[in-house]
Design a protein around this nucleic acid. Structure first.
Lengths: 129, 129
DNA sequence: GTGTGTGCAAACCGTTTGCAGAGAG
DNA sequence: CTCTCTGCAAACGGTTTGCACACAC
């Protein structure tokens, strides 16, 4: 793997973010540092970082990327799609997995909820205000 | 919601399956019963059943659908993509969610592992056999 | 120098949509 | 009769790929 300036930029900038940008959002951010960087370079590198386990990827459409590798989950608002980090551990029962003949590689918990600002908007809508 | 023969066929056939077909795989299955059924009808109805909470949907690409609503999770082989049902419960800490101002709607656990047949193939590959 | 990485545009693929006609109510 | 549902084909949108050139090694 060659050490290009784009590759370095992508990883270091993602690490700095506390948000979970889509490839396109991230592209806009990176253009401020390198106006020529291509969207497909970002896709290519994010994907390869993800495969190497250097970053996280959230299974939304479009996908969101996470520079924070500390073990945490995400809660996603069913109304606006916003994602928040959430920290709690879940005991995974390996026995059940081994019974099926699988070797555990990892797991993700995908939590859906309604965020407070969407809850307010909804309440307002219901009152026809 | 009108009660068309396509709609009825889609739901009843999905309920019969123990597998988790993609829309396209399911289309092939349904064509045996109704050769004229269109792929987009299947998409439309599966999506609406899913929104009504009548069936499950697995967040793969392409998406897979699950006619079994009993509370269970899925383990996905990282090598071949096969999905197995897995039954165990996970305590979700609501306090942490409420702290963030969210109202819990639901959650899914996505478990990744290596299935036994892929593990064998891999071992064989490593030995150059 | 050699070979991988880049940026561009075009292809890709799963999914969605517009439309005219069919069929449920 | 009306109005939603269907099947078709074409559009869509996020992502990937083929290519020629650039640049790390």
């Amino acid at each position: 793997m060659k050490n290009t300036k784009q590759r370095e930029l992508i990883l270091s900038e993602l690490r700095k973010l506390k948000t979970h940008p889509t490839a396109e959002e991230f592209h806009k951010i990176l253009k401020k540092k390198d106006n020529n960087i291509g969207l497909c370079t970002i896709y290519r590198n994010l994907e390869s970082f993800y495969e190497q386990g250097l970053i996280g990827k959230i299974n939304t459409k479009p996908a969101k990327y996470d520079g924070d590798l500390s073990s945490h989950s995400h809660i996603r608002c069913i109304s606006c799609g916003k994602i928040h980090d959430i920290f709690f551990s879940v005991p995974i029962n390996k026995v059940e997995i081994e019974k099926l003949g699988y070797k555990l590689q990892g797991y993700k918990i995908e939590i859906n909820g309604l965020c407070s600002s969407c809850a307010k908007t909804k309440k307002r809508r219901e009152k026809n205000v």
